[in-house]
């Protein structure tokens, strides 16, 4: 019983973090329609910014988190304006954008490694002081509870934003057809910029969450991104809500796999799931 509830709890935490990643990824993919690999680097940026402000500068937690998310969001917007937007203006293919975003990922990852070293590091100032709760024999830390709550709040906030605001309508219009959207007077470039800013902020939150949960490493961005992409494909790519189902599904399979085989096979299991889905159900469980 203990082991079952522990696996369930681990899956829920991992699912919450993957949900965040996939949420922002789907938002950007749905609007800009390309595989933005640089998105992963923004998650890493968030994690490292939190490390810098919180652990190294010793700022208060909430201020540090806000600054970290702001940094990720601003960087995302900057990349969109200086790289992706000129490429879109030139009608570049999705592959060109993908390769460019690969460049973005490589550069940011290496810059982080130069500044902060490529070693694995942890964020918490005081591990012993952390409260641990027990649910049905499984342990969950206070940080993990906070991650869970944050993920739920962001999911809800994004859903409300997309559904009920004028901005949300504009985003949906641009993702349906950006040419028609601009004909009816929507400033598509502005919407695109906002989507990148919001999406990158969510990436930043995911990076911060992963950083507090496990720790930071310059390559964390790529692995987070890949989990997010796999979740997005399982759920039906571009569908913001399907991605959340995919994220929890992936987290459950991964944790069951880790229990059955051992933790080192986690990534391999995740990609095996991806390849099975690409083969047998490429449109995902909840197609857009």
């Amino acid at each position: 019983m203990d082991i079952v509830s522990q696996i369930a709890l681990n899956a829920v935490i991992a699912g919450a973090i993957y949900s965040l990643v996939t949420l922002g990824f789907n938002l950007i993919y749905g609007t800009a329609r390309f595989f933005d690999l640089g998105y992963g680097a923004l998650a890493a940026t968030g994690g490292y910014a939190a490390f810098y402000f919180y652990t190294q500068l010793g700022l208060p937690l909430l201020l540090a988190l806000a600054l970290a998310i702001l940094v990720a969001s601003a960087l995302g917007l900057l990349i969109e304006k200086t790289i992706y937007r000129p490429l879109r203006a030139r009608k570049a293919s999705g592959t060109i954008l993908l390769v460019a975003s690969l460049g973005v990922l490589t550069v940011i990852q290496a810059v982080i490694a130069i500044i902060f070293s490529s070693q694995f590091q942890t964020l918490s100032r005081d591990v012993a002081a952390e409260k641990v709760y027990t649910i049905l024999g499984g342990a969950i830390t206070q940080t993990q509870v906070l991650i869970l709550v944050t993920a739920l709040v962001i999911m809800l906030a994004l859903a409300l934003l997309l559904k009920y605001t004028l901005f949300g309508k504009a985003v949906r219009a641009v993702s349906d057809d950006d040419e028609v959207a601009s004909i009816v007077g929507i400033n598509t470039e502005k919407v695109m910029g906002a989507v990148f800013a919001i999406g990158s902020a969510i990436a930043g939150v995911a990076g911060v969450a992963a950083a507090f949960d496990t720790g930071i490493q310059p390559t964390m961005g790529l692995s987070l991104l890949l989990k997010g992409v796999i979740a997005a494909i399982i759920g039906g790519i571009g569908n913001v809500y399907g991605g959340i189902i995919g994220a929890f599904f992936l987290a459950i399979v991964e944790n069951l796999g880790a229990w059955q085989f051992s933790g080192e096979w986690k990534d391999a299991v995740a990609f095996a799931v991806l390849i099975l889905f690409l083969l047998f159900r490429p449109q995902g469980v909840w197609p857009k």
């Binding site: 790289i83 000129p86 460019a100 460049g103 490589t106 550069v107 290496a110 130069i114 490529s118």
Partner: peptide, 21 residues
């Protein structure tokens, strides 16, 4: 040496971006 290895990454990442542009 270790910074040079990362600089290699920075350079070829930047090359990818510039080439695509």
């Amino acid at each position: 040496t270790d910074v040079a290895a990362q600089m290699r990454q920075v350079t070829y990442g930047a090359i990818l971006i510039l080439l695509m542009l």
